[in-house]
Nucleic acid binder design. Structure first.
Lengths: 121, 121
DNA sequence: TATTTATATTAGCCTAGTTTGATATACTAA
DNA sequence: TTAGTATATCAAACTAGGCTAATATAAATA
């Protein structure tokens, strides 16, 4: 009877998924960046992202070699205000600021023009 | 890191607990009434109520032979508005309206004055 | 096309959570 | 105090969910 509602909230009932959402609230990130920041395997990250996507909380888009994930703009206000309350460790915030998107995953193939524009949608 | 937040939301990620919360939003109910309305054992109901209580979502008070549970008045607004969205089946609403509190559990011991006042706090 | 890199999927293990049945505790009333 | 009822707790079975390792797919580039 209430299973569909329960499932919506169960998505938020996992520490790793909250972590991912909090990171994405700083800026969009590709999967490999999240793998670098989180203490779990790439497989686990991918499975969490799928659940977040199925729940309508994030969207994904491809740019060059990488698949980026972003918070959806139509997230319920209640969820959004929840996310604002979560702390973002300084180290992680600095990491996100200090890396160009995609930079962390593999060095650019060409030596010149390495910082190509990467944008959403 | 985010485990404490995840746990807060995990409480809402169970269909039975949502059901209980929705029933309590109609009116306070004693444990045996909830047992009558829910398709699970008395033991399971009791354990769900404990979790809801530990999460600060409900409070309990005793009246005569029964322990009543009630929604706490300081429930986060986000949770409260969630509850409003949940449907209450007509049969259950009618059941709650059609029964005096405690009436469903056992017939009143005395034949006269069977409808003693029962109130919160 | 072949190769490399990034991401997704699958299967199996493991842990956490829910349920039930049995039992214990807490009241109430005689 | 004793009996009866309501509720809580405990242990074990069952289930669901997260994790890893291995593998598959997809896109980019040589």
């Amino acid at each position: 009877m209430y299973e569909q509602w329960a499932e919506r909230w169960r998505v938020l009932g996992d520490a790793t998924r909250l972590h991912i959402l909090r990171l994405l609230s700083v800026r969009d990130a590709c999967v490999c960046e999240l793998v670098d920041l989180l203490p779990i395997s790439q497989s686990a990250v991918s499975q969490h992202l799928r659940k977040l996507k199925n729940a309508g909380l994030v969207r994904d888009y491809r740019n060059k070699s990488w698949v980026f994930y972003a918070l959806r703009s139509d997230i319920p206000p209640a969820v959004l205000s929840l996310l604002q309350e979560l702390p973002v460790p300084d180290t992680e915030a600095a990491w996100l600021r200090g890396h160009q998107v995609g930079e962390a995953c593999s060095p650019p193939v060409t030596r010149s023009g390495g910082d190509a524009k990467v944008g959403p949608e």
